[in-house]
Amino acid sequence: MKATAMAHPIQGLVKYHGMRDSIERLPYHDSISVCTAPSHTKTTVEFSMDYDEDVYIVDGEELDGHAFDRVERVVEKARSMSDAAHTVYPVRLESENSFPSNVGLGSSSSGFAAAARALAEAAELDATLEDISTIARVGSSSAARAVTGGFSYLAAGLNDQDCRSRRIPTELDDELKTIVALVPAYKNTDDAHEEAADSHMFDARRAHVQDQLVEMQDALHDDDLDRVCEIAEHDSLSLAATTMTGPDGWVYWQPATLAVFNTVRELRNEGYPDDDDVNSVPVWFSTDTGASVYVNTTAEHAERVKEAVAETGVRTTIWEVGGPAQLLDEGEALF
């Protein structure tokens, strides 16, 4: 049985670091994100008696070691939920990203979300997107939110009934535009989870993030884009502080990252430099784990903000809000 699916990566709005359970990927607290399109991962899976063993290929490279084990956990989760006889056969999984991976743009979220959606179909599961989010979660907690798409909320918990993603209703899907400032510096999110949890600031963040979660949900329900983006910017700084104060003092940001921050603040405080009538621009920065920057603004200002950010020397592109993980036609299969 073969199936192909596509999912969009996420931009964390109220993010998490640290996990209670690194196997089931159970975070210490709730989190909120928004999916970004047209960036996506496409994944094809097939259970077949013609295969000798499970094989996982991402962007043309066959996985082994820790990367193999993470995908295997997702596959085994789908198998455990299925009554279909063919799931005992080995599986072949191939995945392709439309955007750079391991640079802070959420490739693990879209990767595991697309895999979970395809696996659920190939395993003939009668499952909702929220159910499928629990499959994706064992690969990456952020992937659970990529399954449900748009603006989504992952609740913390100790089981699949509690720790699953749900969509947050809002009218901001068409209004939010994100200029992605690509700063290609490699990062490892799993290591960051351990670093942050060992920071002396981690307990303070866990206490503070509860207010962030309440405020973010309220802003989304009110369709208040300014508040959403402002909270995301502050949350990015808070999250980075816990990583920077971990045992190894990791600093993911690069000089180009800070240049983008400065440009965003100048636009917000002073407006466009070529405007005679100076007006502040509704624009905010946000980062996940990595050096790349999400620059959030409105549809009206997206092109001019992109031009201003590009002047810092980084590669830029405009993304928008993406939907949930979805199945694709047979003709879209990767093999």
Rank of each mutant, 00 (worst) to 15 (best):
F47Y: 04
V293G: 06
S142W: 07
I32A: 01
S142D: 05
K15S: 11
V74T: 15
P282V: 12
D174Q: 14
I168R: 03
D162Y: 06
F151E: 10
R227A: 13
W319R: 12
L129D: 13
S236I: 07
V281W: 03
V88K: 11
D190K: 00
R268Y: 12
I132D: 12
Y153Q: 05
D126F: 03
E53L: 02
D174K: 14
S110Y: 01
E195H: 11
D190F: 03
S292W: 05
R304L: 13
F202N: 12
I57C: 12
F202D: 12
E53T: 05
I318N: 13
A291Y: 05
D54W: 04
T43Q: 02
S108H: 02
D173N: 14
A136H: 05
A325G: 05
S33R: 03
N159Q: 09
V55Y: 03
I57S: 08
A192F: 09
V14H: 14
R166T: 15
F335A: 13
R117W: 06
G12F: 04
G271C: 02
D131P: 00
F151V: 08
V88F: 01
D64M: 11
H86W: 11
E175L: 02
G246I: 09
I231G: 14
V309R: 09
H86N: 03
A146V: 00
V281Q: 07
F112A: 11
L63C: 10
A325V: 03
R92Y: 14
S101N: 12
I10T: 08
Q212G: 02
E215L: 09
N269T: 09
P9E: 08
A156K: 11
L182S: 03
W284L: 02
A122R: 07
K77A: 08
V58M: 04
A259N: 08
V251A: 01
E215S: 10
A115V: 07
F112P: 03
D222R: 15
S107L: 13
C229Q: 11
A114V: 04
V75D: 09
C163T: 00
S107Q: 05
F99Y: 08
S109V: 05
Y272C: 07
D54T: 15
G60P: 05
G111F: 06
L334D: 04
S33D: 03
Y89N: 15
D64E: 15
I179T: 15
V34E: 07
S108G: 07
M1D: 01
C35M: 00
I32K: 04
G246H: 09
N188M: 10
V305P: 10
A196G: 07
K42W: 00
F47Q: 06
V14D: 15
E124F: 00
F112G: 04
I179P: 10
P273Y: 00
D276V: 09
A333C: 11
L328I: 01
A192D: 14
V147C: 00
L13V: 09
A118E: 00
T128A: 06
Q210G: 02
V281C: 13
G139E: 10
L119V: 03
V251K: 02
Y294P: 11
S286M: 13
A5M: 10
R206Q: 11
M19H: 13
D223S: 12
D173A: 13
S199G: 06
A3V: 00
V260N: 14
D222C: 09
L154S: 07
G322I: 06
S140E: 05
Y56V: 11
A232D: 01
L26F: 12
E230Q: 14
W284Q: 14
H66Y: 10
E94H: 15
F47W: 01
Q212K: 01
